[in-house]
Design a protein around this nucleic acid. Structure first.
Length: 202
DNA sequence: GTACTGATATGCT
DNA sequence: GCATATCAGTACC
């Protein structure tokens, strides 16, 4: 079943940890894509220098982080890539969980076409491994763009399914935010130990 | 495998 | 002007 709004309205770090192993589902013109969430990062806006919404900074781009929980925050970075986040906590608290990596479960050919313009069986080994193992990559594979910014995660186009599995969660420092001073040492990145689709530091 | 570079929207100074 | 929650291509080992 789809995760309810109550799942997202809790503490951001709790939500981040519990999102691991859940299934992200994306419907595009009747084509279904499914990926298991294997790596996330928590972004606690008000106290987090790495976050777009640090100290309640509010811009057109991060506006949806101030909205209700259970919606997608999709932003454009480096002029080329999208990143997918899930908005958490109460409305007015600009916090989110960045989805950093997925393990492909269903819809391999669609993902391969979105990423490389080839069917899955035509991909090289490294291309298969690189399908969804990074925030920008999974957005291309799942055809996620600005159209989904502010979109509900309980909609038909994109949603998250509950899933129970046994695995070990590893906490680590976040990636790509060395500029964030003390916030860069917060261990707010979580991933599934040993999963080959984790972007770094398996 | 690591090291460097370029792509360039958005928000900051 | 300048930096960034990134990735792919190239040049090396």
């Amino acid at each position: 079943m789809k995760l309810p709004v109550d799942f997202y309205s809790r503490d951001t770090i709790t939500v981040a940890k519990e999102l691991l192993g859940k299934l992200l589902v994306r419907n595009i013109n009747g084509n279904k894509l499914v990926g298991k969430i294997v790596e996330v990062e928590a972004y606690l806006g008000p106290i987090d220098k790495a976050c777009h919404s640090y100290n309640f900074r509010r811009t057109q781009r991060n506006e949806v982080m101030y909205g209700p929980p259970g919606i997608a925050y999709v932003y454009f970075i480096y002029g080329m890539y999208y990143c997918l986040n899930f908005v958490t906590e109460k409305e007015g608290m600009p916090c989110a969980v960045l989805i950093r990596a997925l393990e492909p479960i269903e819809g391999f050919d669609i993902m391969a076409l979105n990423r490389f313009g080839k069917t899955y069986s035509e991909l090289t080994k490294s291309q298969k491994r690189n399908l969804t193992n990074g925030p920008g990559k999974l957005c291309r594979a799942f055809n996620i763009d600005k159209a989904l910014n502010g979109h509900s995660l309980l909609s038909d186009e994109i949603y998250v399914l509950d899933n129970q599995e046994d695995f070990e969660i590893v906490a680590g420092k976040r990636i790509g935010i060395d500029y964030a001073e003390e916030a860069k040492d917060f261990e707010w990145r979580f991933f599934i130990k040993g999963n080959p689709y984790v972007s770094k530091g398996k």
